[in-house]
Simulated assay, not measured.
Amino acid sequence: MTRIPAPKDEAELAAVVRDSSEPFRLEGLGTKGALGNPVAASQVLSLRNFAGVVVYEPDELILEAGSATPLKQLEKTLSQKGQMLAFEPPDFSSLLGASTSGSLGGIVACGLSGPRRVRAGAARDHVLGFSGVTGEGVAIRAGARVVKNVTGYDLAKLATGSYGTLVAMTSIIVKVLPKPETEETVFLRGVDDATAMRLMSEAMQSPADVSAAAHLPGDGTYLRLDGIAPSVAARRDRLVKLMKRDAGVLGEKESAKLWTGIRDVKPFWSLTTSSIWRLSVAPTEGASIAAAIMQKLDAAHFYDWAGGLIWLAVANSEDGGESVIRSSFTSGHATLVRAPEAIRARVSAFTPQPAALAALAARVKHSFDARNRFNPGIMVRG
């Protein structure tokens, strides 16, 4: 694959896109190349020069940074002011075999959110705007450095999760939030999947203000509380009483380590030959869906997002388990995150869209990238 010299600024990027007769695979730090379907392009267009903090206004809870800015750099900058990216972006480097945790642009382009999604919302809820270049080589800017922006269409939400098919983002504006003073995790042992779903639902609906809920079969059910120390202690005691069963508590350091592992899919790091799936489903149906799949496949699983996210590691399956997984539920979607090359070559990473939705997506794609220059095939196979 040919690597084009990385454009130094937005004007040069726009010129490269306008002058090309061939499509590109867009790349920031190169850590998310295994996500999505293989891109049908023979040249790589790197955005690595669009890096660094552009504007950071801690009092306004606003940050704008280049799309190739490393996440670790942003987290360090925010932490110095006691702030964070509240959607808790995951680090899939160990899962995907990448050397770094990646960039802000990669996280936004793939629409990735961590355990805090159940309380703080998804990545798209925290992206306020962006600058970039369309597939026609036109520089655009969408959104603004304000939390409330209702002028025109919310293009930032369209770009988030589009896997670089609509626009080559050069900078991104995000909302940031105060970092909790401390955290604790209430855990329950010996709970089956169905009971865990019920308990997590009760916890999320309680006044305890749980910020994350996960269940690791054979290990435990985990409920995170964070905020100022007196509040965490009071809510912990209330939550333990609500659960009506023996419960343990993880202190701040142990809690942080646990949730970093859940966020980054650590339970599956050692399963190097398995196909890894993430299923977004209704939390009330999570246990029954997983049970149906586990009856037919050699697989391991765990739950995040209070049961709304099921992680699956499937072994010894010619199609990575696709036929079983995608026929096990009707509401939701299953994404193939990692698989051997032979499986990736023939199994779509994304659940096929209904005809009406696919037609709408095609019109949106055409409006940004009529020549199909950006990441062709990554979301919809040609």
Rank of each mutant, 00 (worst) to 15 (best):
P7F: 01
A14M: 04
A14H: 07
D19V: 03
S20V: 06
S20C: 04
L26G: 06
E27V: 15
G28Q: 15
G33I: 15
A34M: 15
G36Q: 15
A41T: 13
V44K: 11
N49V: 04
F50C: 01
S67F: 13
K76R: 14
T77H: 13
Q80T: 14
K81H: 15
A86T: 06
F92S: 03
L95Y: 06
L104F: 05
I107V: 13
A109V: 06
C110G: 00
G111P: 05
A120N: 10
G121E: 07
A123T: 14
G129T: 09
F130R: 04
G137S: 05
V138L: 11
R141I: 00
V147N: 07
T151K: 12
Y153G: 02
D154C: 06
A156K: 08
G161K: 07
S162G: 06
S162K: 06
A168E: 00
T170P: 09
V176N: 02
L177N: 01
L177M: 08
P178D: 05
E181A: 08
L188I: 11
V191T: 05
M197C: 01
L199Y: 03
M204F: 10
A208F: 09
V210P: 06
V210N: 05
S211D: 01
S211T: 15
G218M: 06
G220T: 11
T221S: 10
D226G: 00
G227M: 10
G227P: 07
P230I: 12
P230T: 09
R236K: 13
R238P: 00
K241Y: 04
G248P: 11
V249H: 03
S255L: 05
S255Y: 04
A256I: 04
L258H: 02
G261C: 02
F268D: 04
S270I: 13
L271T: 03
I276V: 15
W277P: 01
A282H: 14
A287V: 10
A290H: 11
L297T: 08
D298K: 15
H301C: 13
G308C: 09
G308T: 07
I310P: 01
A313F: 00
A315R: 13
G320P: 07
G320E: 01
G321E: 02
A334I: 08
R346S: 12
V347K: 03
F350C: 07
Q353V: 05
K365Q: 12
K365S: 09
S367K: 12
A370T: 09
R373K: 14
G377V: 08
I378D: 01
G382C: 07
